[in-house]
């Protein structure tokens, strides 16, 4: 029990460190948000998002936006650790390594979720479509968890490589295909008012993916940060 409490304390310390640093600079959040809005703007021109196309294409546009903005955040949050030697400091701390992983992952998840929570109303206003539905928020949460679980592990690997900035999306996107497909399908179904039973299968897939990849990342994080 004591072990678990120590684990939680280390985890919240890492999360708090990330959030405080972000709160003071607001570097990451601004970059992700502006980038996300730009992607939506580009989609507006590229796809001619008229009223009819919107209902069918919206979920795809949203998830591509989240995925791209997500890589930006993942890369940056790990690069700051690496550049100023903070990662070594974290690793020297006498805590379980997985606490560091979960701390970073939760931090990344918070950033991503905050960006998503800003993008949703903006998108709703711009395209006159109501995106604030509890089911949709659930899908976005589940999808983001899967994305961040793999993304945090891979960004830890990518920042240690010579080709770091270009490497993360190349490593990450082929692995998160199931998340993107399931999330796009499920959100699309919700926006088109399908019955929950028709979406259920996709939600199950998301949950399965989340569980499997959190478990794998938990097991492998040690090997990725080892010196």
């Amino acid at each position: 029990m004591n072990n678990f409490r120590n684990f939680l304390r280390a985890l919240t310390a890492v999360v708090r460190k990330d959030l405080t640093a972000e709160w003071r600079s607001r570097e990451l959040f601004t970059a992700m948000l502006v980038f996300a809005l730009l992607v939506i703007l580009i989609f507006n021109f590229a796809l001619e998002l008229d009223a009819r196309a919107r209902t069918s294409v919206t979920s795809g546009v949203l998830w591509v936006t989240f995925a791209f903005a997500g890589t930006l955040g993942l890369n940056r949050s790990m690069a700051t650790e690496k550049d100023r030697g903070c990662l070594d400091g974290l690793l020297l701390a006498p805590v379980d390594r997985s606490a560091i992983y979960f701390g970073k992952a939760i931090g990344n998840l918070v950033f991503m979720f905050v960006v998503e929570l800003v993008v949703l109303p903006v998108y709703s206003v711009l395209y006159n479509i109501n995106l604030f539905r509890p089911e949709l928020l659930l899908i976005i949460l589940l999808g983001s968890i899967g994305y961040v679980a793999v993304g945090t592990l891979l960004s830890t690997m990518a920042v240690q490589a010579r080709t770091r900035d270009i490497l993360l999306p190349i490593l990450l996107f082929p692995l998160v295909v199931p998340v993107l497909i399931a999330a796009v399908r499920a959100s699309g179904g919700i926006l088109q008012d399908f019955a929950w039973e028709e979406i259920q299968a996709w939600v199950n897939l998301l949950v399965v993916y989340d569980v499997i990849f959190i478990a794998i990342a938990f097991m492998f994080f040690d090997y990725v940060v080892e010196e």
């Binding site: 592990l153 692995l175 990849f213």
Partner: peptide, 12 residues
């Protein structure tokens, strides 16, 4: 890293 990615890839 190669080993970790080979496993991740195969599982996905």
């Amino acid at each position: 890293f190669g080993a970790v990615y080979a496993v991740l890839g195969f599982v996905s």
